Amino acid sequence: MALCLICGLFTLRFSTFINAVLSLTLLVCRGYSQEAPTKQIVALLGDDVVLPCSLERPVDVSDLQLEWARTDLIPGFIYVWEKNKENVGMKQPSYVGRTSLSSDKLNHGDVSLTLSKVQLSDEGLYRCFIPQLGQRSYVHLIVGSASTPVIKVMSNDSSRVVLQCESAGWYPEPELLWLDGEGNLLSAGPTETLRGPDDLYTVSSRVTVEKRHSNSITCRVQQRNTNQSRETHKHVPGSAVTKQPSATFIIVIVCLLYVGAVIAIVWNFILSKKPDTKVNETELKTMKQKRSRAPADDTETKEMKEEPPSEQLEDDTSAVDMSEVIKEGEENQETETQSTAQPSFTSSEN
């Protein structure tokens, strides 16, 4: 029984010792054997990017074999370092001349890979592996592309302005937003998205802005996965007219003008059909005078027609004789007047 207790105590102490040794070994070798969590790196199209990979302890790894590979490619090697130089035997052709390591950093346990002139096809999961140490780490590379949007004025009148925002060369597909001067979203038309042969996206949208007061309009294009955002501002001046008439007011004015024109036309038509009383009264008087003179004239005409030509001639002769008699009488009167005035003139001389 005592022997069993001694064996049990020995076993417990031995297991505790083993656990302590293992824990100490893990602590010492922590930087060499653990698999680091996956990191996410965003790179813009055409830029250079560094894929991080390093030991927690600064140990010289320049004499070790180092491997960088794409997990979705076979063979997936994009950089292999062995015997203090790069081995290009199994390197992916699309990465030739675009990957490199820093020999100075290798002396301090930094195996980070520099990838130059990033392409859209470079997006994917990368693995950094040191076979002698058993260390692996992963980097997820996200490739993005962005460009500054451009705002154009499509139409401009006294009360409103139509703006169009367009931005090309985006990846992945972005979203387009319109904002007012206070940062509030504006109601705009649907966003048109086009994808070109280079896999880059072009987005555009239009918005109508009322000229109620001076305002600054912002077009923002953003991509959440790559954390990229670009925006452009456009100042829209307020309307010079303080208040614009409403459409209802304009319709009422037009209707009133139309009704007034119709009434004027009808009134002129009625007046043109109504006889002129003054003209009618004058015509009636003239007709009455003509009718009153008509019997006498008719009688004289009839008598002249009934008289023979000889009697008409005698009447004309008698009329001539009478005029001569009147003329002679007037001359005698003038002679008598002169004779009467002459003696008075003589007496005055005496």
Rank of each mutant, 00 (worst) to 15 (best):
G238A: 09
D104C: 02
T148C: 05
S246R: 15
K274C: 03
E331F: 09
I326T: 12
Q34R: 12
E307M: 10
L185C: 10
G46R: 09
M1F: 14
A240G: 11
C255A: 08
Q228M: 14
K234T: 05
N184E: 02
T277R: 13
A264N: 13
T226L: 03
D157F: 03
S214T: 15
T346A: 05
L64Y: 05
D72N: 11
K105V: 00
V96T: 13
K83R: 15
P37V: 01
W267H: 05
S155V: 00
V320A: 06
A20D: 11
L106Y: 01
P174I: 04
I217A: 00
P37F: 11
A20L: 14
E56N: 05
H108W: 13
S167G: 04
Y79P: 01
L64R: 01
P58R: 15
A168I: 07
E314S: 07
G97H: 04
W178H: 02
I250D: 04
Y138S: 02
L125I: 12
D104E: 13
N87Y: 00
V254N: 10
S15W: 07
D60G: 01
A319H: 15
W68I: 01
I265Q: 12
K305W: 12
V59F: 14
M90D: 06
Q228S: 08
E300G: 06
S147P: 03
Y32K: 03
R212P: 02
C255N: 06
D297M: 08
L313E: 15
I250G: 05
T71H: 01
L120V: 07
E182L: 12
R195I: 14
L45V: 09
L284H: 04
G76Y: 02
S158P: 00
N107C: 07
L22R: 05
P52M: 03
E166H: 06
D321E: 14
N19V: 06
I326D: 06
L113H: 00
A247R: 11
M304F: 15
D180C: 06
E166N: 05
A264F: 12
T71K: 00
A264Q: 10
P174R: 09
V241W: 02
P174V: 06
V207Q: 00
N184P: 03
K211I: 01
H140R: 15
T232Y: 09
G46Y: 13
R160V: 04
A43Q: 08
S216A: 02
S239K: 05
P275S: 09
P275T: 13
P172Q: 11
N87A: 07
V153N: 00
S310H: 07
E300C: 04
I78S: 02
S204V: 01
T38K: 13
D110L: 00
S145R: 00
